[in-house]
């Protein structure tokens, strides 16, 4: 990647993010806040699928854990910061437990195991009424205060700042971590497990820790979802969301966190705005095919292509 075009692109995105609350209406800002939640889900999927080489259909599971955890905390009167931290911790513990099975698998088997984890979680969200509210979902979630003494966030501007700001912090932290030796270890496990083992690295442990981190990222996404829509139901954490997320990752380029977030934005834009009533699945399907053929490395590949 060339340095100056990248820096310019980063600056342009940041400026745009700062300007948007001044120019967009309430509804558009809420949509972007929702994209931030879904973007974290997509980024966690990209982290596992692209960077760690563990293709996953199951990140909706820690996302659900984060959402329901934050929902309960909101009912109990916890501020947003606490909701986010506890949701991340709960999702991390969940990912630790499921990861014990997931990191033993690769390729198609990994897809199937994670699909099962995701589906079982959606079923649990549906059946475990005392905790999740069942099919009706968890409703009447009180408006979230970001910090102690803050105002309850009801409108687009504060929710936009809260969701986009939190997502940026999580994404930058993850991106920075991937630039250290830890990132080299994770990519090493993806590229050549045999080499990593022959050099004495604990491949299973490295992948498990990555799975836990990805779970926490998805969990924060779930907490943002609760804050933004003040409601969560099994439909928010079901297979359709998994499929949309994977589509976002394919569009964005599997190995890129930022691409995945951009992909999530594209998917939501198509689904909510561009598609005529009832045509969203068709349009998203076409988008998928186009993404695979036109951008084999996703949106993140555009920059690299230009360099090549």
């Amino acid at each position: 990647m060339k340095k100056w075009p990248t820096l310019a692109a980063v600056a342009a995105v940041l400026v745009t993010l700062v300007v948007l609350p001044f120019v967009l209406r309430n509804f558009a800002l809420l949509t972007i806040a929702r994209v931030a939640a879904l973007g974290l889900l997509a980024a966690s999927t990209a982290l596992l699928t692209g960077t760690a080489g563990l293709p996953t259909l199951g990140q909706v599971a820690p996302y659900a854990v984060g959402a329901y955890t934050a929902g309960h905390l909101a009912h109990a009167g916890a501020v947003g910061l606490v909701q986010i931290l506890v949701a991340a911790a709960a999702a991390a513990v969940f990912a630790l437990l499921t990861g014990l099975a997931v990191v033993r698998t690769r390729g198609t088997v990994c897809l199937m195991v994670t699909l099962a984890v995701g589906e079982l979680t959606a079923i649990a969200a549906d059946q475990w009424k005392s905790v999740t509210g069942g099919t009706d979902g968890m409703a009447r979630v009180p408006a979230v205060r970001a910090f102690w003494g803050g105002e309850p966030m009801l409108k687009g501007v504060p929710l936009y700042v809260y969701a986009v700001g939190t997502a940026l912090v999580v994404l930058v932290a993850t991106w920075l971590m991937l630039r250290t030796r830890a990132g080299a270890l994770v990519r090493g496990c993806r590229d050549n497990e045999e080499r990593m083992r022959a050099s004495g690295h604990r491949v299973g442990l490295i992948l498990l820790l990555t799975h836990v981190w990805a779970g926490a990222v998805a969990g924060v996404g779930g907490a943002l979802l609760i804050a933004v829509q003040r409601y969560v139901s099994p439909a928010d954490v079901g297979f359709e969301v998994s499929a949309l997320t994977l589509l976002a990752v394919v569009i964005g380029g599997a190995a890129s966190l930022w691409g995945a977030v951009a992909g999530a934005g594209a998917v939501v834009a198509v689904r909510d705005n561009l598609a005529p009533a009832g045509q969203a699945p068709l349009l998203l399907g076409l988008l998928f095919v186009a993404a695979v053929y036109v951008l084999p490395r996703g949106l993140a590949g555009i920059n690299r292509r230009r360099d090549a």
Partner: peptide, 9 residues
């Protein structure tokens, strides 16, 4: 025998 390396790094 077939060199094992982290190709992307």
């Amino acid at each position: 025998q077939t060199p094992a390396l982290v190709d992307s790094a």
